[in-house]
Design a protein around this nucleic acid. Structure first.
Length: 358
DNA sequence: TTTCTAACA
DNA sequence: TGTTAGAA
């Protein structure tokens, strides 16, 4: 096998020799070293490996991630490589949204400066602080629920439907969601937290195009198995991996309750961002009509001796329906709410086309 | 001339 | 990662 020295390969691949040595130091490659002088010699296959590293670097993937990708390639699992590419895509989108929010903050600062003719640092610090808080919220998102492990049994668990099961009326809720959105041929929707694609599947069956995102690659695997024609991407509520105004409608089922109330509002903004003017949002999720109703339901659970189930509910963040409706009202939506059962509601909102996308 | 390591930017 | 120094 013909092998070349570092300068030649560096020239061919358009990288510095330093970079190549650096990748070696990080354990990404291990070229053969000549006994006497310690010169590195690179073979064809190492050239290909380096090319891969460089490509991944170009899309901004950090070295440790590249390391994992290379391991997957070595193991011959292309599917897992795809996962890392999608993960990277989702990371880039997060950064893009970060930048957007920083620009927004900066605009605020500029606006203040213009208005008052001089910089009022207290105001600016306050503005930056709140922006920082929001950024923390986004960062704190993670797959806390072990969906990767649950994915295989998720459908089964959902369909068992005993009494006092939060998944009671699951299928009715999804059917109703599909009905409310009333998607027309040619429209395109996004299902957030699509899981195994149960909700999206109802639209697909009607010939409506729906893309799905989920933060669990295992869930997406199950989804792809059930709906091979469906477009799926890794992503989450707080950083939807799509550009602005891409969808006629955004749907989500049994997912929003994983977010805190503050995060829910950020999620609504994200949904709005990818929604076309006049688009629709439909949320089917576990929530309560109000805090009073929540109390009433709690008492019923306790009276029935199901404190265990209630404890599980308290582990999540079932919404106060009125908070979500208030957000819709403030942002120019005509919204309606349907109650399926005590803690399962469906919110359907259509945005007035003239509402400006701020 | 080329490459190497190591330290510093 | 770029740069640079000193050595093989």
């Amino acid at each position: 096998m013909r092998s070349v020295q570092i300068k030649e390969i560096a020239n061919k691949l358009q990288v510095s020799t330093r970079a190549i040595r650096w990748y070696e130091q990080k354990g990404l490659i291990k070229p053969h070293k000549e006994e006497g002088n310690g010169y590195r010699y690179f073979t064809e296959s190492e050239a290909w490996r380096l090319q891969t590293i460089i490509s991944l670097r170009e899309i901004g993937m950090p070295i440790p991630e590249i390391q994992k990708v290379l391991a997957e390639i070595d193991a011959g699992d292309d599917q897992d490589v795809l996962y890392y590419l999608e993960l990277q895509r989702s990371a880039m989108f997060s950064q893009w949204i970060e930048l957007q929010s920083m620009i927004k903050t900066l605009d605020g600062m500029i606006g203040m400066a213009k208005e008052k003719k001089e910089l009022v640092w207290e105001d600016i610090h306050q503005l930056v602080d709140s922006a920082k808080g929001f950024r923390e919220l986004r960062k704190n998102w993670s797959d806390r629920w072990g969906f990767d492990r649950q994915a295989a049994q998720y459908d089964e668990a959902v369909l068992r439907e005993p009494e006092f099961n939060p998944h009671q009326n699951y299928n009715e809720a999804l059917d109703l969601t599909c009905q409310l959105v009333d998607a027309q041929t040619g429209e395109r929707g996004l299902d957030i937290g699509t899981g195994t694609g149960n909700l999206a599947g109802r639209f697909l069956a009607k010939g409506i195009e729906v893309a799905g995102i989920d933060q669990s690659r295992e869930m997406l695997r199950q989804c792809m198995a059930k709906h091979p024609q469906m477009e799926t991407k890794l992503g989450n509520f707080l950083a939807i991996p799509y550009l602005d105004e891409q969808f006629d409608f955004v749907i989500t089922s049994y997912a929003l309750h994983h977010l805190t109330d503050e995060q829910k509002l950020l999620a609504l903004e994200e949904m709005q961002r990818v929604l076309k003017p006049g688009g629709r949002i439909c949320i089917a999720d576990l929530m309560f009509e109000s805090n009073e109703k929540r109390e009433a339901v709690r008492e019923r659970f306790l009276a029935a001796g199901r404190a265990d189930v209630w404890a599980a509910i308290e582990d999540e963040y079932y919404a106060d329906r009125s908070l979500l409706l208030a957000w819709f009202a403030e942002n120019g939506y005509r919204a309606e709410a349907k109650q399926v059962n005590d803690y399962l509601h469906i919110l359907y909102a259509q945005r007035e086309p003239e509402s400006n996308n701020a």
